[in-house]
């Protein structure tokens, strides 16, 4: 019997580490049930990080329902994109145990 999967959105956010805590608070408040944070390095259009010696970049990933994904992207646009170094992208992902999210 094939495993039943469900389509969800995975949001990946790469941001300067200093705002990671705030981002996570927002993500959880908007309805994500969890997240994964990893340290990331790289460069982008803004060049070096303000906080380059206090934790370079953070990559935060979360798998959420499409409506929650929408809310998170809106929040990023309204509160972070202008002044902070942030990029975000989404993927459709197939998950098992879809009710977990």
């Amino acid at each position: 019997m094939p495993v039943k999967t469900q389509t969800m959105k995975r949001i990946s956010i790469v941001a300067e580490a200093i705002i990671a805590e705030r981002l996570i608070d927002d993500i959880i408040r908007l309805g994500a049930s969890g997240y994964t944070q990893t340290a990331a390095e790289g460069r982008g259009s803004r060049g070096v990080r303000a906080s380059e010696w206090e934790g370079r970049n953070a990559k935060i990933e979360t798998i959420v329902r499409p409506d929650v994904a929408e809310k998170i992207l809106e929040r990023l646009t309204s509160h972070y994109l202008k002044n902070f170094a942030v990029i975000a992208y989404t993927h459709d992902v197939e998950v098992i145990r879809g009710d977990k999210y």
């Binding site: 200093i18 705002i19 303000a50 902070f84």
Partner: peptide, 21 residues
């Protein structure tokens, strides 16, 4: 360059870190 940048980056994000750092 430790306490101030971390606080200012969050409280005044529109200011340019290139200048103050």
């Amino acid at each position: 360059y430790i306490a101030a940048p971390a606080t200012i980056r969050l409280a005044v994000p529109e200011a340019s870190p290139a200048l103050y750092l």
